[in-house]
Write a protein that binds this DNA or RNA. Structure first.
Lengths: 149, 149
DNA sequence: TCTAAATGTCATATTATCATGAGGTTATAG
DNA sequence: CTATAACCTCATGATAATATGACATTTAGA
């Protein structure tokens, strides 16, 4: 019961770091992967997908990397996570009833769909700015600064 | 983003039907699988697991099947779903922070852990009786009655 | 006791997710 | 122009969830 996939969490972590580096130029995938302790090639593929949908900019060549494509207060967690999740399935009836809505509700409908809605609403209403402003004890900041090792 | 696994949903659907048949003897897996439109062999394995942990009784031989091991108002959804979920991971930090709790919280901690708690609380506080009492349009009741075809 | 009907168990197939590795493509720096 | 450092793409492997099929085991009833 993880709610979000591993890949989505990687994307969120990376996006949070990029939000903290806003307007300071692109950050190398290698640095991000090291700081977040995430496999580099996998993160590369993940962030490329986010670039393709317009959440990130990718800069190729020397001094390249990834950066936010828009101001951090205009990027919601939902947008970061959307390419890696199938949000239709959150609306699936808990009891598998083919049609389950306010009119033809299974006994769990009201409670269960409220839970799904809460999750989606959180993701839609929270921006990277909200996450970046807080002070995390994570990621590994030494790695971000280019610590040897 | 499915919150619960497919297997858990099968278990919940089957348990709900058994709760509606409380004290009317065991129900064949074949009948359940037909009524719920779930693969029979897979459901068989799933229900056997629930029997092993004491949620269901399995009755072998002719006129066998599965039935609730306890009154339906004493079986929570959590108990039905627990064997198929890893509830530890619901407590995982959204941003992957190794330690994330009230003392050392990531910026998403309060909101995210509240969402996980709500899901768990719903599963712990809702019993099969709650689901059985409501009137679902599901499962296929013709199949439950032994309809030909 | 024999047979049929049911669960129990095991092996295997399928699919999606997660991850790794090699080599191609692009762009900067000198 | 060349070399280097970065992202990009593709191929492949590992793992877990989902699903199927064959056969063994158990039991009721004739």
């Amino acid at each position: 019961m993880a709610i979000l996939s591993q890949t989505s969490e990687y994307a969120l972590r990376a996006a949070t770091v990029l939000a903290q580096h806003e307007d300071r130029g692109p950050v190398h995938v290698a640095v991000l992967a090291d700081a977040l302790e995430v496999p580099q090639n996998y993160l590369s593929k993940t962030l490329s997908q986010l670039a393709r949908v317009g959440v990130l900019d990718s800069v190729r060549g020397k001094h390249g990397g990834f950066q936010l494509a828009r101001p951090r207060n205009e990027i919601t967690l939902f947008q970061v996570v959307e390419p890696f999740e199938r949000f239709e399935s959150v609306r699936r009836c808990l009891l598998g009833q083919p049609e389950c809505n306010a009119k033809a509700a299974c006994p769990a409908h009201a409670a269960w769909s409220a839970l799904g809605d809460r999750v989606v609403r959180f993701l839609r209403h929270t921006t990277l700015a909200d996450l970046a402003k807080g002070h995390t004890r994570w990621p590994n900041r030494a790695a971000l600064r280019g610590n040897p090792g």
